[in-house]
């Protein structure tokens, strides 16, 4: 049962991501990425990561993808014209991918391990919060500062409307 679910979610994730990088319409890409995120959420649930299951659905499949879809529709992007990549570029890419896949497969298939029994609390909000707010509280605070900086930066970026303003180098102030 668990194996069947793993292959279902894993297969969906791989197919969805392949579909994403091969579509010319950005909208199809974005929707197949949603499929990938949801299947990854399923895998998280199988791995007893209950908090991350919800976070994945909310933040990735929800917030991030809504933002992406919104931008795609706002920019009204047309389909990318087909531009076949050159043979040289293709060969370099194929060699890099083949070598990386071969090495990765050799290393990773050696990592066989049995999952230890964990308590029912493993991956719950309380358990993750306890460690997040004690040992990793500094990192948590840094994330807060980062999000604040992002809010300010996005407002600055989105507010400027004059096209030639960016060529002045910009002092960061909105128009």
């Amino acid at each position: 049962m668990e194996r069947a679910l793993f292959y279902l979610f894993g297969g969906l994730a791989v197919l969805g991501s392949l579909w994403m990088i091969t579509r010319r319409n950005p909208l199809s890409s974005a929707l197949s990425l949603v499929v990938v995120f949801i299947s990854l959420a399923g895998l998280y649930a199988m791995l007893d990561a209950h908090l991350l299951f919800v976070v994945q659905l909310w933040v990735y499949a929800g917030a991030v993808m809504v933002l992406v879809l919104f931008v795609i529709m706002l920019l009204n992007l047309r389909e990318e014209s087909a531009h076949p990549i050159g043979l040289g570029r293709f060969l370099v890419g194929a060699v890099v991918v083949a070598v990386a896949a071969w090495k990765a497969f050799a290393v990773l298939s050696g990592a066989r391990a049995e999952a230890p029994a964990v308590s029912k609390e493993f991956g719950s909000v309380a358990a993750v919060a306890e460690i997040l707010f004690t040992r990793y509280v500094v990192q948590f605070q840094i994330i807060g500062v980062l999000l604040l900086a992002v809010v300010v930066a996005v407002v600055v970026l989105a507010k400027r409307s004059e096209p030639d303003e960016a060529s002045e180098g910009g002092d960061g102030r909105p128009a």
Binding site: A49, L51, V59, V64, L132, L146, L147
Partner: peptide, 13 residues
């Protein structure tokens, strides 16, 4: 899990 949480926040940013 903690690190995935942090990575998710950075990805959203």
């Amino acid at each position: 899990h903690v690190f995935v949480f942090l990575v998710t926040a950075v990805a959203a940013a």
